[in-house]
Structure formats: structure tokens, C-alpha cells
């Protein structure tokens, strides 16, 4: 901070008086991050190596037991299930969200507003209430089954609720807006003259899409993938509600260990492993798709 002594002062610089204290402005930021982000994270890491005691507490002592416990088939399965669901959710979101966001970005200003409104409407109600809506739709004597029975498509009610598909539907439904908006934002920014230039140079519609449009909207798709994959690893109440108790995700497991199970060190270890695995997946994704050099990245 004081290494500026040899540098001649610029005209007017002295008027502010004394040393440059601008660095003080960022101090609150660092304090905040330290207290509310880094601190709790380190605390969690520390707890994950602590020993569980009977009741709710834990005892400070370095142990790897909490991690060793995860090798149990039940927990491995739980992680596998979580990843499977997160990946399927993300994949479906890409398949539905990209075309939606793309066509929305190409609409006229009026229709853009209407579509945007339709996406935003669900956010006006609590996500829990919206999930109960799905319950009503999907249950054995629910709206969907009644409709399909009446149409003669099926002879007996489908058992969708409390199954893997129901959870998947709920997850896709909850996270789709994030994918759509991320894709829409990058499609909106597209310079369509570039596509015309590609066509002019001899590219067919499909070729121009693949080499220009897709490539330039990849940052949006990338953001969408991150915005849906990361939360879907941790969302547990959707699985709890729509999956009954058949589908146990890492998220539910952590919650369970924190509360009923009263094993905070194990919960911390689970959370740590989950965070590390999610980061690893994102790193792999970036490696495979070569999108790390693209602008507009979230990570």
C-alpha cells in the first residue's frame, strides 16, 4: 500500500489528502465473505472429520469414519440415484429448454413479452403449492389418469405418482425456467447477420445452425446446464413429495442426518462429498464440451 512513494503524484491527486484509502471500500466485502461463506464452509469441513456422540452433539477429534461409512451400499446407491436423476433432469431440460428458448428469442417483441410472462407466472406461487398441484395431476385417481381413461388410451390408472418418472417430471418442471431463460438470453444477443453471412457463403440452414447459432448460444446453454444441474443435485423436497419414500437422494439423506438421524458429522461429510462431486462433474463437462474459453461463463 505504501510502495507508491517513488511515483510522482498526479496533479490533483494530493487534494484528496494523505494516503490512498480506497482499498478500505472492499473490506466489508471480504469480511462478509469470510463470515458467511468461507467460515461456514470451513466449519462444515471441520465437522465432517469430527466424531458423532449420542444425542445431537459431536466431539472434536480427527476421524475418517464419516467418509468410510459412505462406502456402505445404501449410501453409494443413494449417490448413484442422485446423479442419475440430476443428469436426466439436466438432459431433459436441454432437450426442452433449448428449442423453447431459441424460438422465444426469435419471436417478435410482443410475443416475447407474452412467453416471458407465461414462464414467470409459476414463480408467483410457492414452489410447494405447485408441487401439490402435480400431486393432484399425477395421483391414481388424478386428473391425468381420468383424462387418459376417458379417452380410452389406458384401461387402468397409471402408477406415476411415487415413482421415478414423477420425481423426474417434478424436477424438470421446477428447473426448466432457468434453462429457458439462460438460452433465451444468449439467443436474444445473437447477431442474425452472422447466420445470413454463413448462408451466403454456402451453408445450408442446418449447417449454419450447427456452426454459427449453436456455437454462439453455447454459453447460454452452458449456464443453463449449470443452473439446472447444481440445484438438482441438492433438491430433496421434490423427491420426498412426488417419490414417496422410495427415492432417497443425497439431499434427503443430509437433511435426515441433520435432524432425525442426529449425526451432524456424517451429514457434513455427505455434503462435502456431494459438493466435490458436483464440482468434478462440472469440470468434466467443461473439459468435454470445450466451452471453458467461451465468454459469459458462470464458473
Amino acid at each position: 500500500m505504501s510502495g507508491n512513494a517513488a511515483v510522482p503524484a498526479l496533479p490533483g491527486a494530493g487534494k484528496r489528502g494523505g494516503r490512498d484509502r480506497r482499498w478500505l471500500c472492499v473490506v466489508p466485502l471480504y469480511v462478509f465473505t469470510l463470515l458467511f461463506v468461507l467460515g461456514p464452509a470451513l466449519y462444515m469441513v471441520a465437522i465432517s472429520f469430527a466424531k458423532n456422540t449420542a444425542g445431537t452433539g459431536f466431539r472434536w477429534a480427527f476421524t475418517l469414519d464419516n467418509f468410510a461409512k459412505m462406502r456402505d451400499g445404501v449410501y453409494v446407491n443413494c449417490f448413484r440415484e442422485s446423479f442419475r436423476l440430476a443428469l436426466s433432469t439436466t438432459a431433459l431440460n436441454v432437450l426442452i429448454g433449448y428449442p423453447y428458448g431459441y424460438f422465444m428469442g426469435r419471436l417478435g417483441a410482443r410475443w416475447k413479452r407474452i412467453m416471458m410472462f407465461l414462464i414467470m407466472v409459476p414463480f408467483l406461487t410457492s414452489s410447494l403449492i405447485r408441487l401439490y398441484g402435480w400431486l393432484i395431476l399425477l395421483q391414481a385417481k388424478g386428473v391425468l389418469n381420468k383424462l387418459l381413461l376417458a379417452l380410452g388410451v389406458i384401461d387402468e390408472p397409471l402408477k406415476i405418482l411415487y415413482s421415478y418418472p414423477a420425481v423426474l417430471i417434478g424436477m424438470v418442471y421446477a428447473l426448466l425456467p432457468f434453462m429457458i431463460l439462460a438460452v433465451y438470453t444468449s439467443v436474444e444477443k445473437m447477431d442474425w447477420t452472422l447466420v445470413e453471412a454463413a448462408r451466403d457463403l454456402g451453408a445450408t440452414r442446418a449447417k449454419a445452425f450447427a456452426t454459427i447459432t449453436l456455437r454462439l448460444t453455447l454459453p447460454g446453454l452452458m449456464s443453463g446446464v449449470i443452473l439446472t444441474f447444481v440445484p438438482s443435485m441438492g433438491l430433496f423436497f421434490i423427491a420426498d413429495l412426488l417419490g414417496g419414500n422410495k427415492i432417497v437422494l443425497v439431499g434427503s439423506l443430509i437433511q435426515d442426518q441433520m435432524t432425525r438421524g442426529a449425526n451432524q458429522p456424517f451429514a457434513a461429510a455427505l455434503a462435502l462429498v456431494l459438493a466435490l462431486m458436483t464440482t468434478l462433474m462440472l469440470w468434466l463437462y467443461r473439459k468435454v464440451t470445450h466451452t471453458s474459453e467461451l465468454e459469459g461463463m458462470l464458473l
Binding site: A197, R199, L201, R215
Partner: peptide, 19 residues
């Protein structure tokens, strides 16, 4: 379609592919 025409264009904005 444009790709079938033996005609090319220099666009006002140049339209160079940024990537």
C-alpha cells in the same frame, strides 16, 4: 436459397464470425 447462388455479400457490419 442463398447457398445455391454464385453470389457473395460483404455485409455492412462485416458479419465476421466472432468465435
Amino acid at each position: 436459397p442463398p447457398e445455391k447462388r454464385n453470389v457473395n455479400t460483404v455485409f455492412q457490419s462485416y458479419a465476421l464470425f466472432p468465435h
